[in-house]
Design a binder for these strands. Structure first.
Lengths: 330, 330
DNA sequence: TAATCAAACGGAACCGGTTCCAATATGGTG
DNA sequence: CACCATATTGGAACCGGTTCCGTTTGATTA
């Protein structure tokens, strides 16, 4: 049972061009329409989409290149993208790079080979390899989470968010602060948030902060936090964390040492993961609209595919979520 | 700049069959090899994978049909699948159905159209439409999370897990128990876990349980829990929840009412989400190996594609995670 | 030196659709 | 009834690769 369009045509006693017309809404008489319909139902014929795309020279697929799937931010964003794409008749093809930069490049070429119409790149760093790849494949690309002047970008306002967190912590009276960040290779998370925070610190004056670095995973944060909490010299009264995951790690480390939050030490996060709301105490954090960002990225990339105008840079806003993890400095 | 294999051939001054041979490791002389290599580098030629798959009549893609992406279980499982597939040279195509059963059916046909080699279906319910679709598309399918005699299945041992939880709660001295479950349409989560729990109850004797139903989302669980905790008649000393999300909802509801866990009431979950470990108190729960399940599903589907033997049913084991959310009944 | 053989290569068919174009059928009009 | 516009249909070319087959070339061997 091969079931190609020629088979259908033969059985129905018509030319395959007629079957094709039937399938694509061309002019077909009522009589043959019924014949063909019957044969198709009978045989369970499913058109081969390769042959179609080969002729059409394109697909209705949009690629998403993500560093990891099992994070709150990624999965929310991807879900948002998927919704928006489906509404517009596009299909999403997700490529997970497991945080391997070289695989991001591979992914770009891979998607080009598959004649994907557009790509959303969940970026952490933009290297020259990225730029040449984007250039070479000749497919519209949207950068999500990082910006570059040569590529359409959608970013979160990490600087402003960091600034807000800084102001808030200072307004709560904290003067000895630990900032637990991540690698500066990640411009948005590692640099911008910290810069915003430092700006607040500078404007305020009279407060000092020590800067530490941790990995993105919670276990790394637990370790880093243990170092901070365990040192015998002056303890910070607040720990500002570059991500919610890190903040959760800090809270766990604190709890293991019998340090109470927020009575003994205050903690803040970044991201607005769902769990930050349900845990006790609730984590004060910055909430980004990941799903909305995904939908926006989808809409942008579709516009680019259709050669409509898209602003080269979109800055997304955020929400400040004040919960219970920050106390007034005694 | 079209850059088809014919263009390359023309520029290099050879036949396109020669270029094809060059690309696929056929016999090509050193001289022409260099010529072609040079032209390809020069033009940035990328072969069109449609044309390839059209001829090959298949792809190296495996589809995953998932009800939602933004859940811990799905994203972990998908990540595991992705890893295993990549190792074997397959690519993963994820289709998110947003918990819409009819879209699962669509997805199956969609994947068939795209000549996907195999499918892993993250199932919640198996209807006859599912079975006819699976039958009709003629592509190997693995059911993950639910079982059916006619389809290769991988399931978690939900019955045994429910039984273990029941025994544990009873051993801790609880006699008035509330079971907060989900719809029985979901055989694995809604039925099996409950049956296991009831079995433990029956074997033990002398304890009673009230059964409630909630949705899967945390907000639904908060509401359901509020009903249980708010009723004036006899309060249960323990609430057994069918998922971790529901347990988290219960914990939140309890906290909002000033009810302490585990001092005033004990709580258990199912699933083993990461957060259950970091929250306070840690949630006693059943931990499933989602990533491992994903990898296994990938291996199974690959075997099916290669027409090797696969056991029709694989039952995965689990880990009992005893934490702090259950106390001895006073 | 002639016969033999393998490597290298070109040409053509094929995968399964879509679409253009020309041929035929249909129907309405004067 | 002849004529013309329109609807329907079949045939063939094409999309961009792969592969089979037959020919050419150069080297090896008798």
């Amino acid at each position: 049972m091969k079931n190609t369009i020629s088979d259908i045509a033969k059985i129905a006693g018509v030319a395959k061009s007629t079957v094709s017309r039937y399938l694509n809404g061309g002019s077909v008489s009522e009589a043959t329409r019924r014949k063909i319909e019957h044969v198709i139902k009978e045989t369970g014929y499913i058109p081969n989409s390769f042959a179609q795309s080969l002729k059409a020279k394109k697909t209705s697929m949009i690629g998403a290149v993500v560093p990891r799937l099992d994070s709150f931010a990624s999965s929310q964003t991807v879900t948002g993208m998927d919704e928006a794409l489906r509404e517009s008749g596009y299909q999403l093809l997700i490529i997970n790079t497991s945080q391997d930069l070289s695989r991001e490049i591979e992914a770009l070429y891979d998607l080009a080979r598959q004649k994907i119409s557009g790509i959303v790149l969940f970026a952490t760093q933009i290297t020259t390899s990225h730029l040449t790849a984007i250039e070479e494949i000749g497919i519209p690309v949207i950068l999500l989470g990082q910006q570059h002047q040569d590529v359409h970008s959608i970013i979160y306002d990490d600087f402003a968010a960091g600034y807000d967190i800084g102001r808030y912590i200072l307004a709560k009276g904290h003067r000895d602060i630990a900032y637990l960040g991540v690698t500066e290779k990640d411009v948005a998370v590692g640099v911008q948030r910290k810069l915003g925070f430092q700006q607040a610190l500078k404007e305020h004056g009279g407060a000092s902060a020590d800067f530490y670095e941790s990995g993105f995973r919670m276990s790394a944060a637990v370790e880093a936090a243990s170092d901070i909490l365990g040192s015998r010299d002056r303890q910070p009264s607040a720990i500002v964390c570059a991500t919610d995951n890190i903040a959760l790690g800090v809270m766990k480390a604190a709890h293991m040492r019998g340090i109470r939050i927020p009575e003994d030490i205050s903690v803040t996060g970044f991201g607005g993961y769902d769990v930050t709301e349900v845990i006790h105490p609730g984590l004060t954090t910055i909430k980004y609209g990941y799903a909305a960002a995904g939908r926006l990225a989808a809409r942008h990339v579709i516009k680019l595919v259709q050669e409509e105008h898209v602003d080269p840079l979109t800055v997304l806003s955020y929400e400040f979520m004040e919960r219970e993890s920050v106390d007034n400095r005694k």
